[in-house]
Design a protein around this nucleic acid. Structure first.
Lengths: 229, 229
DNA sequence: TTAATTTGTTAGTCATAACTAACTTTTTTA
DNA sequence: TAAAAAAGTTAGTTATGACTAACAAATTAA
């Protein structure tokens, strides 16, 4: 009630930051997100992100202590979810009705998601008969911001031929994290299971333009969303 | 060729000004447009318009002498036409597919027309099977910026029951212009012909919430686009 | 044709949102 | 645990596009 006025007319930038923070925190399943991480994700200098975080804190969308990690308030998360809903609905529209390909939609949807009109997006949703997933397989939140959380599964639980997306990595083991980045894996990497060796449960995966064999222990600590099976 | 780089990435504001100037010059059929007129149309202070005009001149979209009237270059007009095309296509889409009403479309189309993607608008055009007019009866320019110019007719040439839009007034007679504004008529006013009196050719017109009787001489100097007959 | 009005311009300010550079705090690691 | 590295912050600059206030030129009217 007190911050109803604040909600009106967020700038495109404010919206982008809230969405980015949401993606880092919830969608990519990271436990903590810091200022520099947000800056890197947004492709801006740390000072720029810091400035915006201050602003979003003063407006009640972000919470953090000085030198501490960032969190979204309920209001902040609600806005981010609204943007994600719009983004995914537009992507679906572009692919299904306007002959856009998988790789062309993102840039345009990034612009379309900022159009201010509740009616526009809800009518678009109705026009397409309330699709549940976007062209990348991501779940589209409904008008209330509700969406089915696709449970994260470990890479080790998949079978040959399945395709998945890396959404998180377990624990704070430095050597493990180093290993992950050294072999070129990153959040959002798309991974295909080429082969599961029965005798030791090691698996051969393909991602980007390379393939790599990893142990079960490694795969136990990699969380993915299944895209295709 | 030399200003190909300039063409890339106009800001939303630059686009808005070019479109406004086009509307004033060509669409509304005014002979000359000055800085303050542009400012008023854009709802900004004269200084703001002046500043932007300078910028657009330096980029080769506008031509004018100091203290002189404003004109668009071919490049400037082409950009304006592109925006008008986008605007009218989106308005058509909103009305025909997303259940928007006549009066709801404008504000949203104002936002949508700035989305940067040639493919988006051309595919939208194809999806709707290349509509020729928008919901307000305005002609939609094609992908090359070509459009049929609806000839301007005088108010005096219309018959009872016809509805039209005021798009221009003739000559520079001050008393006439004062008369026009004193009875509450303005550019874009929507006028219905209530009655044409045969004995002196005077006509009774209705617009906004009022009706007024005007002489043939008056009606000879008012140019309109016919909306409905 | 001079005075008044309108129109156009310039100068300086403000907010947004980016930047670099310098600095402080926290975390890591040697 | 002390030094190095990483992470976060602050201060000051830049560009865009608004604004007001003051002023100059052009047009209109007395």
């Amino acid at each position: 009630m007190t911050n109803k006025l604040n909600k009106v007319n967020l700038t495109k930038s404010e919206e982008d930051y809230l969405k980015a923070l949401f993606q880092l925190l919830i969608d990519d399943g990271l436990a903590t997100v810091g200022n520099n991480q947000l800056a890197e994700y947004m492709n801006v200098a740390p000072a720029s992100a810091n400035h915006m975080v201050k602003k979003l804190k003063s407006k009640g969308y972000v919470v953090s202590e000085k030198y501490g990690k960032l969190e979204l308030t309920e209001e902040g998360a609600a806005i981010a979810l609204k943007l994600i809903r719009r983004h995914r609905l537009w992507e679906t529209f572009l692919c299904d009705y306007l002959n856009f390909t998988w790789d062309e939609v993102h840039e345009v949807a990034e612009q379309l998601e900022h159009i201010k009109s509740e009616k526009l997006v809800d009518e678009l949703d109705r026009f397409m008969d309330f699709p549940e997933k976007d062209p990348h397989g991501e779940v589209i939140p409904n008008a209330k911001g509700e969406y089915a959380i696709v449970p994260k599964v470990t890479l080790s639980s998949l079978e040959e031929g399945m395709i998945c997306k890396l959404v998180a990595v377990n624990d704070g083991s430095v050597s493990f994290l180093k290993y992950v980045s050294e072999i070129g894996l990153a959040l959002s990497s798309e991974i295909k299971i080429l082969e599961v060796r029965a005798f030791d449960n090691s698996i051969r995966i393909q991602y980007d333009e390379r393939s790599e064999a990893v142990t079960k222990k490694f795969a136990d600590n990699v969380f993915v969303h299944v895209i295709n099976c």
